[in-house]
Design a protein around this nucleic acid. Sequence first.
DNA 1: CGGGGAGA
DNA 2: TCTCCCCGG
Length: 347
Amino acid sequence: MGVTELGKLINESRQEIDLAKLNGRIISIDAYNALYQFLASIRQPDGTPLMDSRGRVTSHLNGLLYRTINLLENGIKPVYVFDGKPPQLKQTEIERRRQRKEEEAHAAEAAAKAGNTEEARKHSQRAIFITDEMVNDSKELLTAMGLPWVQAPGEGEAEAAFMAERGKAWAAGSQDYDSLLFGAPRLVRNLTVTGKRKLPNKREYVDVKPELIELDKVLRELGLRDRIQLIDLAVLIGTDYNPDGVPGVGPQRALKLIKEYGSIDRVAKSVGLEKFPMDPIAIREYFMKPDVIEVGELRFNKPDERTIMDLLVRRHDFSEDRVKGAIERLRKSMDRTGGSSTLDAFM
DNA sequence: CGGGGAGA
DNA sequence: TCTCCCCGG
């Protein structure tokens, strides 16, 4: 997902950041990215996610509730940005992912039947898909919590970056680096309070700290002229729109090629255009001009306790005591930062 | 992932 | 008070 390989080239321009430094700041969070993380990590050892009595997955609601409250308690204003219609460019990749998830779901089932819980967990984590119902419940929860959220016309990541570029948000929040390609001046990764992440294939956990990545610093570190060159670099490595990148070209060689030739079209002429199943210039243009909208006034309101209880406790079998405790924390954090106020008040 | 109880 | 670890739905 996203341009994960780009991270291998980024060192000095990646800085750990204290949560306190984010106090009072708005972060436009890629909702899909966040929900995906919750669905991947909030699981039992055998890979079973949290579910209500009707078998509906609830891991995303659990994660969304507690993480959002944690952010608010630290004075951070999260604004979740939901995906709209994916661009045409992404269609083949979407179909490819759907097929792979189907296979992984079968593999998970088989492993579970064979009693291999580790395998089952691994495969079921790769089989995650986010349903409309999950998205709708998440939006309902956020609204009931008194938080604004944004419906992007296209990619949520693009809209979140646009909000950061326009100063609607201080930074974009995501695990992917795509926000930088979409023009976010700042990207915050690992936006968690008690960051613990499971190491792949191991039982160990490592501490993860929030990190701030600034676009201009990245360009300087890599020695690139502008964002267009960064996009060109990413297209060589592989993006959501050309996931394989150019076979045989890794991050290091891609950087060298962009510096040597200056742009992706010149690189393409050199390495051969047939190495690009998708038109690299079309991908670049999409990153430069994605489908985004100006967001209207965003408002933080008092939490609606009734609706939160109805959604989580009555409909999804959360424990009444736990949710009450969460609402209490939510109320306190909202009071401290001003329960009902416009987004502009925090700028 | 994150809460909170157990045990030190 | 702190760390570890189980459990949430």
